[in-house]
Amino acid sequence: MAAAQMTAAQAGVPKAGKPKRQWTRASAAWSAFKHDKSAIVSITMLVIIVIACLIAPLLPIDPNATDVAHRLAGPSAQHIFGTDQLGRDYFVRTLYGGRVSLLVGLLAMLTSLVIGIVVGTVAGLVGGFVDGLLMRIVDILSSVPWLVLVTVVSVFLKPGLTSIILVIGLFSWMEIARLVRTETQAIKGRDFVQYAQLCGVSRTKVIMRHVIPSALPTIITASTTSLASAIMTESSLSFLGVGVQQPMSSWGSMLQDSQAYMQNDILMAIIPGLLIVIVIFAFNKLGNVMRVFADPQVMSGERD
């Protein structure tokens, strides 16, 4: 009997079974993507922008090479986006600026995501005093105007990319923590979480195995918003002059620089502004598509 089961287990268990299941979810996400025209357009543009930013160092043009003779030139064959106030090629600078903006957005989002998920799940799952304490910290942090907070802190930190990422990441996780906590509290009452606790599954494993997968749709939505707002925050900081330092540029700092020359060269403001809008919109769309992938209920159809 045991032998028969052994062979059944060895012969009959198709190892290919699992990927196939994952594939059904991927195809659900694909069809959600296919049926959303704005998602197709914006995500395609995002991909092009990201690739262009990545390969920018391969271009034979130095983004910091000044050419005062041709300052504030309009688009031409030589400079497709024209030049800035110091005669630097605006196209290459835009790509380099995009590297900074996207990096800041991504890393700041990851920082706030990690802090937010840890605080949210712990507060939601443990409850009681711990919950109260963590949530009061969240309340305090979110009641201080973030711009004041970020500006003050960035004064104390050495200016640079790392401090900007840290500052944005450390002060933007509160919303994620709140969302994850609410989600965790709802999941905590579910039979399968109670059952795991009954069986003695450790709290960390419960979080990793049950809570986070269930909260994933929420987390994905929150993280796309968070990424978008990190890019915006970086732009605002640079706009206010406490962001990235010259000669390094980001889309935000380029926007700031452009304001003095708005009347001469409107394109200098439009290009980085437009890119910020496109990227943020595309990330939100990407979040929607990924949410379909993360949520198996989409596939389960109706229950009566």
């Binding site: 579910r190 039979d191 059952y195 049950h210 269930s214 209920q297």
Partner: peptide
């Protein structure tokens, strides 16, 4: 419907305890 984690396969569910 509520007592089985929708994110887990049957193998993971049954082997959990």
């Amino acid at each position: 419907y509520l007592s089985l984690d929708p994110h887990m396969t049957v193998r993971e569910i049954v082997s959990e305890p």
